[in-house]
């Protein structure tokens, strides 16, 4: 049974990838996550210059959901150079550099700098729901903005494949994906966090998160992620690789994502529920399921639901 996936020319030993924003600040931590079985790593969002996040509390959770409003803090380009440079010297698994900016032009400038560090993919975060007070609605909420960012990044990305990270908080995620595909995107990461949501402390009667609202992740959002992946896959004709992320806890969750149309699967919040070993656990659970079902390679699963739907039509 093979878990290996080759995506846009890059081979991942297994489809699990550390999702952006979680445990992704230093080369040491990326290697640690790889040592726990992740097939790939996504960095925390990288800014051109230093960007401050929100005060605490920034991350809170219950058994069903996690809310975060970390506010995308980053030390800027110099740190990215140091950490990615360090990682590239001894690189256990492929690295996806996630970038963010406040304007279309700055997305282009950030991408131009980061591609020089030779990540395997660029992932473009146009969908963070935690910085709306600062920057307004995410670029992922408009066909025009999403397309403009994609073009700006593709203009400077050279041979490095560009994945656009989409928001579930839109009326029609398929039309956003189609627009990005037309603008040159090489793939999609689906989805960023949901909402935003809010939690209130009863005695003080105040919102718990310092930012008041935060993006929702964790097991509760999985059905939304599955539907969004299916929408993007269908809207782009099944021709674009999708990194499916949002609420994955188990190997069976991962298989469901593949059937919806994903090629790789992002795991983030589940680290808080099942520990750092979650990557290895998910791989073992996927292998066990595939072996029991006679599936020889996970590659045959991607988009399986769409094929099952068409063959079941009279």
């Amino acid at each position: 049974m093979s878990l290996s996936q080759t995506v846009r020319g890059v081979t991942f030993q297994n489809p699990t990838v550390l999702a952006s924003g979680i445990w992704g600040i230093t080369a040491s931590s990326w290697r640690r996550v790889a040592a726990n079985g992740a097939g790939g790593i996504t960095t925390k969002s990288l800014w051109l210059a230093e960007h401050k996040g929100h005060p605490n509390p920034t991350i809170i959770s219950t058994p069903h959901w996690t809310l975060n409003a970390v506010g995308v803090p980053d030390a800027g380009l110099e740190k990215a150079r140091e950490e990615i440079g360090d990682y590239n010297k001894k690189k256990p698994v492929p690295l996806i550099a996630n970038i963010i900016a406040n304007t279309v032009d700055n997305y282009g400038k950030t991408a131009a700098e980061i591609v020089q560090l030779q990540p395997d993919f660029l992932e473009v975060n146009i969908s963070c729901p935690n910085v709306e007070d600062e920057f307004g609605k995410p670029f992922a909420c408009s066909v025009r903005d999403a397309s403009a960012v994609t073009k700006a990044v593709k203009a400077v990305s050279g041979k490095i494949p560009v994945f656009i990270k989409l928001s579930p908080n839109v009326d029609d995620i398929g039309s956003i994906a189609s627009a990005c595909a037309e603008a040159g995107a090489d793939g999609f990461t689906v989805i960023n966090t949901v909402g935003p949501g809010m939690a209130i402390d009863l005695r003080s009667r105040l919102p718990i998160l310092a930012n008041k609202v935060g993006g929702m992740s964790g097991p509760a959002i999985k059905p939304i992620a599955v539907r969004c992946i299916a929408d993007v896959y269908r809207a782009t004709g099944g021709k674009f690789p999708i990194i499916g992320t949002g609420g994955i806890m188990t190997g069976e969750d991962a298989i469901e994502f593949l059937l919806a149309g994903a090629t790789l699967i992002g795991i983030g919040t589940a680290i808080g529920y099942r520990g750092a070993e979650v990557f290895r656990m998910v791989c073992e659970e996927m292998t066990a399921w595939c072996e029991a079902e006679g599936v020889k390679s996970v590659t045959e699963l991607t988009g399986g639901m769409h094929r099952a739907l068409s063959s079941s039509r009279p």
Partner: peptide, 19 residues
């Protein structure tokens, strides 16, 4: 520290990457 339970990774230390 931010989250306190191993999610944000702000408290990882070099070179082990442990939280």
């Amino acid at each position: 520290m931010k989250c306190g339970y191993g999610l944000c990774g702000n408290c990882t230390v070099d070179p082990l990457g442990i939280r």
